[in-house]
Amino acid sequence: MKKYWLFLIAPLLLSIISCSTTHKITPSATGIGKFQYIGQYVVPHNLSFNGTVVGGLSGIDYDAGRQQYYLISDDRSALNPARFYTAKLYFSDKSFDSVRFTAATTLLQPNGNAYPDSKTNAALTPDPEAMRYNAKKGCLVWSSEGERIVEPKDTVLTNPAVYEISTTGQYIDSFALPTQFRMQATNNGPRRNGVFEGLGFTPGYKYMYVSLEEPRYEDGPRADVRDTTAYTRIIKYNNDTRQPIAQYAYKLEPVAHAAIPENAFKVNGISDIMVLSDHKILTIERSFSSGIKDCTIKVFIADLSNATNVNNINSLQADTHFKPATKTLLIDFASLGKYIDNIEGVTYGPVLPNGHQSLVFVADNNFSAAEESQFFLFEIIP
């Protein structure tokens, strides 16, 4: 999901900030008891690397074997061909020192060509949003939100998709798309820019979960200020067959702030997920309202253990006989007391020198000088 500004903001400066604030969170079966904030790093705006503009960082995952990170850019081949980066992050349990990009890899279509931009062929232009590394297969999986433009003179309908690729960008296969998530010219199916924003594998890579950012048209209205009825969906896949096997309803928080002006753009949805176990998922909800500088970022643990499989329920608004996932708030980024931008990715990093697990978040700057490509580093204290 892109963040649209309707006002001007002075360019933000590169900053590296660190502290040792500890935030208590509700203990859970995942063993997480506290997040301790370590530091932040901001990539310089329009950083040039290997002939590309670094930005739009919408997904992140850590490859422990190679000790590197994969970062997908949501550039729709507008500035450079659709791509992902590999990078090294340098930090300890005391500070976040730097980020060094090591490669830029073009995402390739099944025919081996790079994806075109929207002026060349809008129907084939992807909207990359999430990426995970499958250590069992040694490959990557990434998601595209597709496109939905319905205008009298120009209709473009491109389905969202999840692709399996090699670490060098070559297409391997795609995951089957449930019919509920096909783009339509009528007000049915997914909304534009509100589709596959997050994905992740269960331990052992038997299953994969894919999250829908916002409600489908049939599932009810989008989240709004003071609204508590917006339900989106999480799809469960068999990772070997690439076939969907279940869907679960997930209730979104209200939009955090009224837009300025009141009828301007505002949104809240799932911007990424990180799978913790066969039934528990860490979810990021990102709320943005025009006229408000910061995004509101809340991180939850969602439990699907007792949630209803809504695979055969076409409308979560018309048929309310289901149990959604339960969720527990872990942290509201507002508690850090810092400017928080458009966080769209999360991953475990390596174990820190003190023996605790690291957790890294990344923000998408939408290639705007008014926004930041932020990295946030935490340690997890069980």
Rank of each mutant, 00 (worst) to 15 (best):
G59C: 03
P382C: 07
G65K: 03
M274C: 13
A161P: 05
G337M: 08
K94H: 05
N238S: 14
V43I: 15
T52M: 07
D93Q: 03
I331R: 06
G204R: 13
L71R: 01
D63K: 08
R192K: 15
S289P: 10
L157M: 10
D227M: 11
L276S: 03
P254G: 03
L157Q: 10
L282Q: 00
N50W: 02
R132L: 08
P44F: 11
P324K: 08
I281F: 02
M1A: 13
Q68D: 06
E372C: 12
E262C: 04
V267D: 06
D319A: 07
M208I: 10
V54P: 00
V360M: 13
W142E: 00
I292F: 08
T320E: 02
G33P: 00
F322I: 02
F375V: 09
V99I: 15
D173G: 08
F288C: 00
N314W: 04
S290I: 03
E253G: 02
I343D: 00
T296D: 15
G291Y: 06
K338N: 04
Y37G: 03
E147N: 11
R226E: 10
Y231H: 12
Y133L: 11
Q184T: 11
I260K: 15
Y163D: 01
T105Y: 03
Q40C: 13
T52P: 00
I340T: 07
A123T: 10
T228P: 05
K236M: 02
I235E: 02
E372S: 15
V141T: 13
G291R: 12
A318R: 13
Q180C: 06
I234E: 01
Q180W: 13
H257V: 04
V299Q: 06
Y209H: 10
L108T: 01
R233G: 02
I270S: 08
I235D: 00
Y205N: 12
I292R: 11
T26C: 01
A334Y: 05
F196A: 04
G138H: 05
Q317D: 11
S58F: 04
Y85G: 00
N159A: 05
R182M: 15
G39D: 09
L282A: 04
G56C: 10
P81S: 11
S143F: 08
G39K: 10
F288W: 11
P126M: 14
S48D: 09
V150I: 12
Y69T: 04
T241H: 08
F300W: 15
Y90I: 12
E379C: 12
A363R: 03
Y209F: 14
I16P: 00
A82F: 06
F322D: 06
A246M: 02
Y248L: 09
D127S: 07
P27R: 12
Q40E: 15
A256V: 05
